[in-house]
């Protein structure tokens, strides 16, 4: 028998959003709260990111949900672990984790230094690895049917000039979802990703003062960039206990059909 419930309701769920200061992270946090969840907002750095997350926090509290802020150094697996433990303790458990770190860099491969490559890999990929590892540990502790959603990029599967480091990091995220999704499936933990195409806030990678940049925004089938709030509903679907329970290891593009462009 199918469960008699609202499939997408997150009421009472304890959620953690890493990279809550990014547009995608903020949108996911707000969407979780709208669906009824309490949200721990983890920001990657203790600077203006905190201010941006505070706006998200206020929005969530205005919905009558609980929100709290944490600084998580995602470069360090131990810090991810310790902060997540603290989040779970303070919230009274953990059901759902989303992660949306994003450090875009565009550089010719011959000019990309060892340090730059390491940083891009750490922020975009290693952080996601640490988060999956730690989230699974928390879910396992309470025998909860955990849900993990990573935010990645269509550059994980298609090419563009000067993105060798960034695209490689996201290619690694693609396979993290597949490999770890497989591994965690038997524990009732699902792991999926949302792969973003061109979003209207991505002025770091699509420069609309550039003619080719403007043309790139017409490459999606819907012929426009996406908006952060368009990420939320998919994140809620992937986080829900019954709405997506048999879906794991999948990459869901939110790209307006960009990946269908020739």
């Amino acid at each position: 028998m199918p469960p008699q419930t609202d499939y997408f309701d997150l009421t009472g769920k304890k959620t953690m959003v890493v990279g809550a200061e990014t547009p995608a992270g903020g949108a996911i946090a707000r969407a979780y709260a709208q669906a009824g969840a309490d949200v721990a907002l983890c920001v990657l750095t203790a600077d203006e990111a905190v201010m941006r997350a505070r706006v998200v926090k206020r929005d969530i509290e205005a919905m009558g949900r609980k929100a709290s802020e944490y600084v998580m150094d995602v470069m360090l697996g131990k810090n991810v672990q310790v902060t997540t433990r603290q989040v779970a303790k303070e919230m009274g458990g953990l059901d759902i984790v989303a992660s949306a770190p994003d450090l875009f860099v565009a550089k010719p491969i011959e000019k990309t230094t060892d340090m730059e490559l390491a940083r891009v890999m750490q922020v975009n990929f290693s952080s996601q690895f640490f988060i999956v590892r730690t989230a699974a540990e928390e879910f396992r502790r309470d025998h909860r049917p955990g849900r993990i959603t990573l935010v990645t990029s269509v550059l994980g599967e298609r090419s563009m000039i000067d993105t060798a480091a960034y695209a490689s990091a996201h290619g690694a995220v693609y396979n993290l979802v597949r490999a770890a999704g497989h591994e965690l499936a038997r524990e009732n933990i699902t792991l999926n990703a949302i792969s973003l195409g061109w979003m209207d806030y991505m002025d770091d990678r699509i420069d609309t003062s550039d003619e080719d940049g403007q043309r790139a925004l017409r490459f999606p089938m819907l012929r426009r960039a996406g908006r952060a709030e368009e990420i939320g509903p998919t994140a809620v679907w992937l986080a829900s206990e019954f709405g997506s329970a048999f879906i794991t290891g999948q990459i869901i593009p939110i790209d307006g059909g960009l990946l269908q462009h020739q």
Binding site: V105, R158, I161, T163, R205, D207, A216
Partner: peptide, 19 residues
């Protein structure tokens, strides 16, 4: 010639962001 692999933006488009 790499066509199927690309297609996210015009083939010669270079984004600008650096660290």
């Amino acid at each position: 010639g790499g066509m199927l692999n690309a297609g996210l933006a015009p083939a010669k488009y270079r984004p600008h962001a650096e660290i």
